[in-house]
Simulated scan of single mutants.
Amino acid sequence: MKLKCIIIDDEQYAIDALVAYVSKMPNLEVFATYVNPLAALTNIKKEDQIDFIFLDIEMPEITGIELAKSLRDKTKFLIFTTAHTGYALDAFDLNASQYLLKPISFAKFATTIDYILKDLTINKPSTKNELLFIKADSKNSYHSIDPKEIIYIEAAKNYAIVFTAKEKYITHMGLSHIEAVLDLNDFIRVNKSNIIAKNAIKKIEGNTIILKNAKTLQIGEVYKSAFQEFLNSSLWKASS
């Protein structure tokens, strides 16, 4: 199954170039393109999660940075494509997967995609194997983790920490890469640094989540909408 891509850029020639690049990648396909960023915002909000969003930054009416704040929870991988270097810190504050400077060669594009996909060294559990394997510190070394035991995952500089009830595991994997292979029926991203197990939630007080191990986390602004949707779908409602 190919990974769905959305391209947003106010210049059609830039969109055309990325469409051509995506068509050359055997595991990618273009799902939609938008020259109007406001139309992108309206339509993508209605979609299920998209695998990749390629996003320009300097656009009329709304910038790519502003747009990403509303759409970050809708995509596994967010890649900014821009001619400007000055937004890199803002981009990575939004947990961007990559920041590509225009003009973008196909070699650079392909290398970036291959790096992101090959870095998914966590294997999804299957019906036959319910364990996750995450890459450890040393070469060819992996941790075996039962996903049912995970309480939360935290990004820390250039690595992530997986917390279970009994142990914690360090992996040099990006949080977006981890999120991409977790079962989102069981886990949810709550801010730029944390993914939590839904069944590990003990209490919610405003924007604060208290987990069963007493860890407290704040719900990030970008992730409030998705978390509220999860909360609404999980509420017990009195019958009328």
Rank of each mutant, 00 (worst) to 15 (best):
L89N: 07
E58W: 02
A107Y: 03
F92W: 10
E58I: 08
R72L: 10
L94E: 01
T82N: 11
L94S: 00
T112I: 11
I44E: 00
P103F: 09
G86W: 09
A39E: 12
K46F: 03
D90P: 00
T75L: 06
D51A: 14
P103D: 02
I104Y: 12
I50R: 05
D48Q: 08
T85S: 12
D90H: 11
F109I: 04
A83P: 01
F106I: 15
A68N: 07
A96E: 06
Q49C: 07
E61N: 15
G64M: 08
A91E: 02
I50T: 09
D73L: 02
K74N: 04
D56M: 10
D73C: 09
D51C: 12
F54I: 10
K69C: 14
L41N: 08
L71D: 02
D73M: 05
K102D: 08
E61F: 15
D90A: 14
Q49A: 09
I113L: 05
K102Q: 08
S70K: 11
G64S: 09
I65L: 07
I113S: 02
I79E: 00
K74R: 07
P103N: 05
F80D: 01
K108A: 09
Q98Y: 14
L41K: 11
I57R: 07
M59E: 10
K45T: 14
L100D: 13
